[in-house]
Amino acid sequence: MSYQEKKILTNMLSGIVVLVAYYIYAFGRYRNGLAEANDLKFWAGAMLLFIGIGVVASIIIMIIFHILYAIAIAVKQRNYDDKEINHTIEASMVEDEMDTLIGLKSSRIGFIFAGIGFVAALVSLMLGQPPFVMLNLLFFSFSIGSLAEGGFSIYYYRKGL
């Protein structure tokens, strides 16, 4: 598995963890009666909080990922000198035209998921569902869109363009 694939998988995992944590937190409070369905301030606040947590977690996880990645290469090439190890690490992290193209194609698919979610959110309102359902559908679809983007990136790396 290449550096890019590992990086995308790590990002996807952190996204899944944050999404699950949001649902445990928000719906846990809702089920326990600590939050009302119509309390849009609570739902918006919870989403903003977890978006913030997601950004911070993603940065921290990426730092840890890069440290572990460098250690893994250093261990694998323990008989080489530092210059050679640095060279291997830098060479494996090169981003080129194929990465850009895969990024563009998979982000387009991600936006399709987000768009479908947006329409589903509007439909839910039309069907008389409370606004928190719409908000959660939006949040969920954007998260799924992001995960789909990662999934399709890996698919394109494996299958080719």
């Binding site: 290449s2 494996s92 080719g160």
Partner: peptide
């Protein structure tokens, strides 16, 4: 470019 890109080009995947 990255080695992965060369692999993909060589294999006709890109």
């Amino acid at each position: 470019v990255s080695r992965q890109t060369i692999i993909a080009v060589e294999a006709g995947k890109y």
